[in-house]
Design a protein around this nucleic acid. Structure first.
Lengths: 340, 340
DNA sequence: TGCTGTATGTCAATCGATTGACTAAACGCC
DNA sequence: GGCGTTTAGTCAATCGATTGACATACAGCA
C-alpha cells in the first residue's frame, strides 16, 4: 500500500463504519469500549496518522498557530519564540513560523498563507512601518476575523486586538537614570530611529529623563546590529576626551560598543559607560558583563500565546515592567558594580 | 458576511460556475481572458484567500515544509533556519517549525504533526540519540514515504535520505592544529559528549590530531552553553600554571571561557588560548574577537532546502569543508593574530 | 446543409474527517 | 406485553478546491 492509511482502511479492517472509527479514535462514547479497542489496535497496526487538512476543512478549526517574527538573527526574538513555542506545545499546538524581515510585504504574504492554511490564531510582532491597514486581512473592521490575533513585543495604535509588550518608555528612562548616576562628559543614544513602537518609546523615555536633567544627548539612529554599535562607538570614542555614556537600543548594539571600547584600549565601566536593553542571555557573559535593562520575555511570550489560545480569558492588553540588570559596564562613582 | 469567501461566492458574484473560477484563478486556458478578468476582480473585491486545506486534500500536495530544530537558544540553528527560510520563501513555501529540544519524543510528535498537516517535505536536524527507527514514520523501509526528508547539520548512519552537513571531523582537526601552532602547557576539549554526529566527529578530529602530536587532552563533556564554558574554564584556570589551550565544541562555550579568563585577569591570545567552532556572527565582536572554525551555514541550509524542494536534482549527501577563522584568542608565537 | 474543430464553459466525483439525524437491538419497568 | 430509554452503531451531507468527462456555440469548409 503506497497510500497513507485513512479512516476507511481502518473501518474495512475492523469491519465497522467510517463513522464508528472516527468516533472511537476521538474517544466519543458512542462506541463500545471493546470495539474502540479493536479500532485503536487497527489504527496503530496500519500506522494511521489523521489527515489534519481534511479535519480542518470539515470542522473549520485547526491547531496551527501562526507566529510572525521580524528577524531571526536578533536573539531577542528567539527568546520570545522559545517561550511562545513552549506555551503552544503545552496545548498541542504547533507554531507555523513566518519571518517578515521588517518588510510589510513579506509580512502580508505570510498573513495570507496563515489564513490560507486555516490557522487557528496569529501571534505577530509587526514589521517596522506596519499600518493598521496592513493588518486588515486578519483584523477586519467589519465582519469576523479569520482567527484571533495578538500582538507581542511591539505595539500598534488603532488596532483592535490584545497587545503584550514591555514598557519601553520606562526602559528608556531606566537607561538614562542609570547612566546619570555616574559622571559622563557626553551621552549618546545608539540605534533605533525606525518605525516601531519599541524604537520610539525607548528613545523617548531616554530623552525624557536626559532632558529633564539638562542634558542633550547625541542621537545616532541605525540598524540593530553589533556592527553598527562597533562602528558608531569607535568614531565617537575617537572624537571625545572625557568619559562617554552610551545607551543602546538593543544589547546587540551594546556588544559592538564593548568591542570598540576594548579595541581602543578602554575599559567599559571605568573609562566609559555602556548600557544595553533587552538583557539577552549573552549579556551575562560579555567582557565585561553588560549592564542592561531586563525585559520579561517569558511573561510577554507566554501571555501572548495564552491569549491567542484562549481569547476570552486573556484579552487584555498588557505592558510589562522592565527592570535594571546592573552589571559592570556603567560607571558608578558611589556604589561598586555588582554582577547580575 | 461572516464567512471567508470561497470559490462559490466568486462564482455567484460573476455568474459563472465554480469550475470556471478555479480554472481562471490558476490561469488555465479554458476560460476567456475577459471572463478571467472579471473573476479576478471579483476575487479581489471579496477578499478571497484560497483554502489550502481543501486544495491540499484534493491534490494531495502542500506547500508547507516542516523544519525540525533542536534548540532555538543556540544561534547556530537560527543561522541555519534563516538560510532555509530564505530558500523556501523563494519557492513560495513556508517553514512549519518544530523544536525538539533534543528530545526524540517531542521530535516524534512533531513528525506526526507534519504528516498530519500534509507537509510537502521535511528538513530535520535530528535530536540527540535519534535512531533510524525514530525516523521510520517519515522514512519507511517499505512503502512510500509521506514526503521527501532531508537531514541537515547532523548526520545519521543507516538512514536512507540526503544529508547535508559540515565536515566535523575536519573541523576538530583544524581546531587542534591551530592550538598546536602555539605553545601550551595543557590542552582541553570542552563540551559535547552527547549522542550527536557533530559532537562525536569534532571531538574525534581533535583527539586524532592531538594524539598524533603526542598530547593527551583533558576531555570535559557538558552542555552547549556559555555557562558551562565559564564554569569549566574558571576551574581549569585556577588549577593550572602555564598557558592552557581550550578547544570548544561550540562558540557558545568559548564565549563562556573568554568571560572566565577576563574575570581571572588573563588575556586570551596571550595568557591562554581559546578556539571555538561554528563561527557565529557574535565571534567577530567578542572581546577579544574569537578564533573559530567557520562553517558554511548558508551552503548547508540552502542545499538542504533545495534538496527537499527538488529531490531529483539535489539528492546527494554532502559534507561541506570548514575553514579556520583566525582572530585573536589563540597564542601565535610566530605569526601575529589578525582580525577576521 | 452537414461535418469537423475549437473555444469556452459546466458537471459531478473526489480527497478524508466530522456530525446531526436516524435505526436496531437490548434493557428496564410497571 | 407494551412502552420508553439506552446503547451502539450507521447514513449521508458537508467543508472547498480540483479535474476528467462532457456540453454548447460558433466558425470554417466542402
Amino acid at each position: 500500500m503506497s497510500r497513507r492509511a485513512n479512516l476507511r482502511d481502518i473501518a474495512d479492517a475492523v469491519g465497522v463504519s467510517v463513522s464508528a472509527v472516527s468516533l472511537a479514535l476521538r474517544g466519543e462514547a458512542r462506541v463500545s469500549e471493546e470495539t474502540a479497542e479493536r479500532i485503536r489496535a487497527a489504527a496503530k497496526r496500519l500506522g494511521y496518522v489523521p489527515n489534519r487538512a481534511a479535519s480542518a476543512l470539515r470542522t473549520q478549526r485547526s491547531d496551527i498557530v501562526a507566529v510572525c517574527l521580524n528577524d531571526l538573527s536578533n536573539p531577542i526574538f528567539n527568546e520570545f519564540l522559545t517561550h511562545i513555542e513552549d506555551e503552544l506545545q503545552q496545548s498541542g499546538r504547533m507554531p507555523y513560523l513566518g519571518v517578515s524581515r521588517e518588510d510589510p510585504e513579506r509580512q502580508a504574504r505570510f498573513l495570507e498563507a496563515a489564513i490560507s492554511q486555516g490557522a487557528g490564531g496569529l501571534l505577530i510582532c509587526p514589521a517596522r512601518g506596519t499600518t493598521p491597514e496592513d493588518l486588515r486581512v486578519v483584523l477586519p473592521t467589519t465582519g469576523r476575523a479569520p482567527f484571533p490575533t495578538v500582538l507581542f513585543s511591539r505595539s500598534l495604535e488603532d488596532v483592535a486586538c490584545p497587545q503584550f509588550g514591555n514598557d519601553d518608555f520606562a526602559a528608556g528612562q531606566l537607561m538614562a537614570e542609570r547612566l546619570l548616576a555616574g559622571a559622563h562628559e557626553t551621552y549618546h543614544w545608539l540605534g533605533g530611529g525606525h518605525d516601531s513602537s519599541t524604537a520610539r518609546a525607548r528613545e523617548a523615555g531616554f530623552r525624557n529623563v536626559m532632558e529633564r536633567a539638562g542634558h542633550v544627548p547625541g542621537i545616532h539612529h541605525g540598524p540593530t546590529s553589533r556592527a553598527f554599535g562597533h562602528a558608531t562607538a569607535a568614531r565617537l570614542l575617537r572624537e571625545s576626551s572625557g568619559p562617554v555614556g552610551f545607551a543602546c537600543f538593543s544589547d546587540l548594539i551594546a556588544f559592538g560598543v564593548l568591542a570598540a571600547a576594548a579595541q581602543a584600549g578602554l575599559r567599559a565601566g571605568r573609562d566609559l559607560s555602556v548600557i544595553g536593553c533587552d538583557d539577552m542571555e549573552e549579556a551575562r557573559f560579555s567582557v565585561p558583563p553588560l549592564t542592561s535593562i531586563w525585559i520579561d520575555k517569558s511573561a510577554i511570550g507566554r501571555l501572548a500565546a495564552r491569549s491567542v489560545l484562549d481569547p476570552e480569558a486573556e484579552a487584555v492588553t498588557r505592558r510589562i515592567a522592565p527592570r535594571l540588570a546592573d552589571r559592570a559596564t556603567v560607571r558608578s562613582p558611589s556604589a561598586t558594580p555588582s554582577a547580575g
